[in-house]
């Protein structure tokens, strides 16, 4: 839930029962509740169609499979609530993975490699943020340019070849209390993003800027600093996603993260974030990521032909987004009407 959505109702105007719950949920909360309902339906249908779906091993597989997307979606949520976007995070993840592989195959320790590529990711984010703030260029286009630059560097660095990596499996293959490490990392990242949005000044400022940048400026929010900080965080998380990806598959591919940025945007929008900024929640993003992962998983389990997978995935995404919007409208019509 975002800070904007959690403003308390006026004293003496508090409806009771379901209406009170709806009011407390806010528009984003209503969207998330509707999306959760869609996810429950998908899970129920999936478990009826496939005996394997609800097994522990398979559910752990799903968490492992959505982990990289979850990390990138966390970064995208922070940016989108502030009205920003970063299309270069997938390419940044690829480049960071490639650099990590080069370092690990040299004499660098895992710690040095991790710190180095997270630093590089932050540097990329810093450049993105500085360029966007200083030039006023639309982040969609500017980060599209960055994406192309990073892809080019990745391919030039590797000669377009995949680089195998040994002795770096702990981040991608290990488990913690039975939970795959990539899922643990993604969970921590998403939790941190949620706490940042809800309980820190940076998060509240991000929501305020996304809601109304001019009013935020008048209110004294350092818009440039907030935006740059968010892009730096996004860069760091892209690097982390790249590391998890490399560790999971045991190799760094120069194009390994390409395309994930759009999946991340899709997950965040499914989760209720507005493309115009000012609205969104990490809870919604988590549901969006899980929904995408569950659909892919169950269609694979059922061995549905690729072309029909696209049809089914698109249909569920459309239903999820429409259900979320319907939840928001229902809440504004009945729960918050005066």
């Amino acid at each position: 839930m975002s800070a904007v959505d959690s403003l308390p109702a006026a004293a003496g105007d508090r409806p009771r029962g379901p209406l009170a719950l709806l009011r407390r949920l806010g528009p984003t909360g209503s969207h998330v509740a509707a999306l959760a309902l869609v996810l429950v339906v998908v899970v129920v249908v999936a478990s009826l169609l496939s005996e394997t779906f609800l097994t522990t091993d398979n559910l752990l597989n799903v968490t492992r499979q959505v982990a990289v997307l979850g990390i990138l979606a966390g970064a995208t949520t922070l940016l989108m609530v502030s009205g920003g976007i970063d299309l270069s995070i997938g390419a940044c993840a690829s480049l960071c993975g490639v650099i990590a592989a080069k370092l690990l195959n040299g004499d660098a320790s895992a710690t040095v490699a991790v710190l180095a590529v997270v630093g590089i990711g932050m540097g990329v984010g810093l450049l993105n943020g500085l360029a966007i703030v200083a030039s006023g260029a639309p982040p969609l286009i500017l980060t599209l340019g960055t994406m192309s630059i990073l892809e080019g560097f990745s391919q030039a660095t590797t000669n377009a070849e995949t680089i195998p990596v040994g002795n770096f499996g702990w981040l991608g293959a290990a488990t913690l209390l039975g939970i795959p490490m990539p899922a643990v990392v993604a969970g921590v990242v998403l939790l941190a993003c949620g706490l940042l949005l809800r309980y820190t000044r940076l998060g509240r400022d991000a929501l305020a800027i996304g809601g109304n940048e001019h009013a935020s400026f008048v209110a004294g929010i350092g818009i440039g600093r907030v935006k740059i900080a968010l892009y730096v965080i996004a860069g760091a998380l892209a690097a982390l996603a790249g590391l998890v990806l490399v560790s999971r598959v045991g190799a760094a591919s120069p194009m390994g993260g390409v395309g994930l940025e759009l999946q991340a945007v899709a997950a965040v929008v499914i989760g209720g974030a507005s493309l115009a900024g000012g609205r969104g929640s990490v809870a919604g993003t988590v549901l969006g990521v899980v929904l995408l992962g569950v659909i892919t998983n169950v269609l694979n389990l059922l061995n549905v032909q690729t072309y029909y997978q696209s049809v089914a995935t698109g249909a569920v995404i459309a239903i999820a987004v429409m259900s979320g919007q319907a939840g928001t409208r229902w809440r504004s019509d009945r729960g918050a009407g005066h």
Partner: peptide, 13 residues
């Protein structure tokens, strides 16, 4: 990465 995910699902199925 995609192939690894598909293989995980394949083994389950």
């Amino acid at each position: 990465g995609k192939a690894a995910s598909v293989a995980e699902n394949m083994i389950q199925a």
